[in-house]
Amino acid sequence: MILVRAIIRPERTGIVLSELLSAGFPAVTKMDVYGRGKQKGIVIGDIQYDEIPKEMLLIVVNDEDKDDVVKIIMRNARTGEKGNFGDGRIFISEVMDAYTISTAKQGL
């Protein structure tokens, strides 16, 4: 199993979630997060903004679905034709195991 962790612009969350659902990936955890990327925040005049609002999506999928999920997120989270700074990042991690609490069932 694979954990896909995507940090994206809040205004792109709806379309990303809709496309994931349409492609058969309904199980997503969404969290409001704040931070900065390689651009070190945003400077407007004399003010520096270090805590830029983003959304983090957590999706656990079978190994063979990883590339499809990443492509869906990339295609729908990107702003503009070639993308822009601040569009976000995707991190991939292995999941050792998963359990459904209500049924004690192992796996996805």
Rank of each mutant, 00 (worst) to 15 (best):
D65N: 12
D68W: 05
G45L: 09
E94N: 12
L57R: 01
M56L: 12
I101R: 03
G24K: 13
K66H: 03
D67M: 07
V28F: 03
G107E: 13
I7Y: 14
K38C: 08
A104L: 15
K54M: 14
D65I: 00
L58S: 04
G14K: 14
L21F: 11
F91D: 01
E55Y: 14
I73N: 01
V16E: 03
I52H: 07
R89A: 00
Y34Q: 01
L21Y: 06
A23N: 09
A98L: 11
R9I: 02
R89K: 15
D65S: 12
K30E: 11
A27N: 12
V4Q: 05
Q106I: 08
D65L: 06
V60I: 15
M31N: 06
Y49I: 12
V33W: 13
E19T: 00
L57C: 00
V28N: 03
D46M: 12
T13I: 00
G80W: 15
G37M: 11
T29M: 07
M1W: 08
M96R: 10
I101N: 06
S18L: 08
F85Y: 09
I44G: 00
D50G: 08
V16D: 04
K38I: 04
E64F: 09
I15F: 06
T79E: 13
N62L: 13
V61G: 10
M1G: 11
R75Y: 09
D63R: 13
F91I: 05
G83W: 13
T103A: 12
Y34M: 08
V43Y: 03
R75L: 07
P10Y: 05
I15R: 14
A27T: 10
G37Y: 11
K82T: 10
G107F: 15
F85D: 00
I42S: 11
I92T: 08
N76C: 02
I15G: 06
M1H: 14
S18Y: 11
R5M: 12
S93A: 14
R5P: 05
T100H: 13
G41R: 03
I47M: 06
I8N: 01
Q48N: 05
I8C: 01
R78G: 00
F25P: 12
V95S: 05
L20M: 09
N84L: 15
I47F: 10
V4E: 01
K54E: 12
K105F: 13
I90L: 05
A27F: 10
V28Q: 03
R78T: 01
E19Y: 08
M74N: 12
V33Y: 06
L108T: 05
G80H: 10
S22H: 13
D32A: 04
M1I: 02
M31Q: 04
G107Q: 14
D46T: 05
G24Y: 13
N84T: 03
A104P: 01
I47A: 07
D63N: 14
G86D: 02
Q48M: 11
Q48K: 11
R36P: 04
S93N: 15
N84F: 14
T103I: 10
T13Q: 15
D68G: 01
F85R: 04
E94V: 01
D50P: 00
G86R: 09
V16H: 03
Y34I: 07
G24H: 14
I52R: 04
K66W: 04
E51Y: 06
G86H: 07
A6I: 02
K66Y: 09
E51L: 15
S102H: 11
D87V: 01
Q39W: 10
K30R: 13
E19I: 00
L108I: 11
G83C: 04
T103H: 07
Q39H: 11
L20G: 06
S93V: 08
L20S: 08
R12W: 02
